[in-house]
C-alpha cells in the first residue's frame, strides 16, 4: 500500500472512529497512562491499515484493533517515561478532558473509574455494550458465544452498579 493512501485512510478512520479510541483509552487507562495507551492504539491502527481488505466494516476492524491493543497493552515504566517525552503533544488535558465541571461530567468520571475496576476482558465487553453493539457483534469480537456474552454482561452490569452505588455512598 502506498504511504499516501495509508496516511489518508488513517486520517479518515481517526476522524470517523475517534470516539471509539477515546472511550477505550479512558476505559482502560488511568489519567497518567492515557498518552501511552493512545499512542499504542494509534500505532496499531497505522500498522493494521495495509491488512484491511474491506471484508468487515471499518468500524468493526477499528473496534478489534483498539480492544486488542488495550488488552495487550502493558505500561512499562521505561517505555512510559520515554514515550511521555517523545509524545508530549498527545497529552490528554487531564480531568478537563470531558469539558465543563457539572454533574454529568462527574457521572462520566465515576463511570469510567468504575469500568477500570473491572477485569480487562469485562471492561472491553461493557465498553462495547455501552457503544450499542449487538450480542452477535460482541461475540464475534471476543471470540465467544452469544449466550456467553449475555451471561457475562448480566454479571458485569450488576458488578458495575454495585461499584457505582458504593462510590455514591462514599
Amino acid at each position: 500500500m502506498e504511504h499516501a493512501e495509508q496516511h489518508r485512510q488513517f486520517e479518515e478512520w481517526i476522524e470517523r472512529h475517534g470516539a471509539i479510541i477515546f472511550r477505550v483509552v479512558h476505559g482502560f487507562a488511568e489519567r497518567d497512562e492515557r498518552d501511552d495507551l493512545l499512542q499504542e492504539i494509534l500505532l496499531s491502527i497505522w500498522k493494521a491499515i495495509p491488512s484491511y481488505r474491506g471484508e468487515a466494516k471499518s468500524i468493526t476492524f477499528v473496534y478489534r484493533i483498539c480492544h486488542n491493543a488495550a488488552l495487550l497493552w502493558r505500561r512499562s515504566q521505561f517505555n512510559y517515561r520515554r514515550r511521555l517525552e517523545r509524545f508530549q503533544w498527545l497529552r490528554e488535558p487531564d480531568e478537563a478532558s470531558f469539558g465543563g465541571t457539572d454533574h454529568q461530567e462527574e457521572q462520566l468520571k465515576s463511570l469510567y473509574a468504575a469500568i477500570r475496576q473491572l477485569s480487562p476482558p469485562d471492561r472491553s465487553l461493557i465498553l462495547l455494550s455501552l457503544d450499542g453493539l449487538s450480542y452477535r457483534e460482541m461475540a464475534e469480537l471476543h471470540g465467544i458465544s452469544e449466550s456467553n456474552v449475555g451471561a457475562k454482561l448480566h454479571r458485569i452490569k450488576r458488578q458495575l452498579t454495585q461499584i457505582l452505588r458504593n462510590h455514591d455512598h462514599e
Binding site: 496516511h7 488513517f10 486520517e11 481517526i14 476522524e15 475517534g18 470516539a19 479510541i21 477515546f22 472511550r23 493512545l38 499512542q39 494509534l42 500505532l43 497505522w46 517523545r86 509524545f87 503533544w89 498527545l90 470531558f98 469539558g99 465543563g100 454529568q104 461530567e105 457521572q107 462520566l108 463511570l111 455501552l130 457503544d131
Partner: peptide, 25 residues
C-alpha cells in the same frame, strides 16, 4: 451520559492526534 458529546474527543483533538502522530512517525 455515554452518548453525550462530552464522551467524544472533538474534531480539534482528533486532528491533533493525526497530525502529531504522523509527524512523529
Amino acid at each position: 451520559i455515554w452518548k453525550s458529546p462530552r464522551n467524544e474527543p472533538g474534531e480539534q483533538r482528533q486532528r491533533q492526534w493525526t497530525r502529531g502522530f504522523i509527524r512523529k512517525l
